[in-house]
Amino acid sequence: MSTTAAVGTAPVRAPKLKTSAMIASFADPGQKTAPAPFGHALAAAAEADPRIVGLTADLGKYTDMHVFAEAHPDRFFQMGMAEQLLFGAAAGMAEAGLVPFASTYSVFAARRAYDFICLDIAEPNLNVNIVGGLPGLTTGYGPSHQATEDMAIFRGMPNLTIVDPCDSVDIEQAVPQLAASEGPTYLRLLRGKVPTVLDEYGYTFELGKAKVLRGGRDVVFVSSGLMTMRALAAAKALEKHKVDVAVVHTPTIKPFDEETVLAELAGDRLAVTLENHTVVGGLFETVAGALVRSGQSRRVVPIGLPDEFLDAGALPTLHEKYGLSVDRIVAKVLAELG
């Protein structure tokens, strides 16, 4: 975790982080990473499936789509900074028998092009794969680029599968499964040098499945996206406090693997959800809804972004401020356990 210089834990003379870059890495210093896993996975999937094409709205370089474009220039279509066209055209290409992957930032897909995704893609249940960069709090650029409510927006859309991957392993394995699945999908893209974490857990991505990454007697974390990486780190840190934590990774947000998650929540361990998303309408409420529907009544502690427009700034600073850092997770769990 690169939170050593962050607010609250910083040594007095530590330099203040200055970068509020559009594209910021959330990898820890020295962490194993894979470059542009989405672009490479899509290029590889396209070798096997001639129906796959790639589209973007002037963000090919920033969604790793450029890797696909270089590998398959005749199958890449630049639509310009026009997100309504991007998704309408993706629907048309699917109608023509192709399997499009269309990339932009999550904010533009969810907020700006919603009507086109909903009516042109989801209603006819077309195999269009929406790829959204900068999901949740993965940029320091402020609310214009921070898709803090993308899952809340998309969860209400019938037919749409929502995937929130943790790392390069998830992304590499998800891409061919997204292409193979019949209806539309939304992938919360992690781009650039993406951490490789799940290879240490004997893990494989299965669309629609949650996986128990580690068991634990005292606490159960239910997490998705990059927060699974944080959950695993926090679980390790909590060992030093004699707290034994289980981690359940739920990369598919919809349809949600209620069976696996409810089974893990059946006991009396402290239950915590962790998501890189507002606590409104995302993983926490998905889990809460599943619990209530099944007749289980129990407390769940949500760790996620507040129901606010967030600050601009450096990512480590913001993750510390809004509670996504490992230190904040550990502190929260210890406080809950009293």
């Binding site: 290409m93 109608e95 192709l98 086109f116 042109d120």
Partner: peptide, 25 residues
């Protein structure tokens, strides 16, 4: 009926993708 219209301003965007896709094939 090729598409569901009604929310206006969608048809030509779909037509662009359809024309691109057909030509590609």
């Amino acid at each position: 009926m090729e598409i569901s219209g009604g929310s206006l301003g969608h048809g030509l965007t779909i037509a662009v993708g359809l024309a691109l896709g057909l030509r590609h094939r």
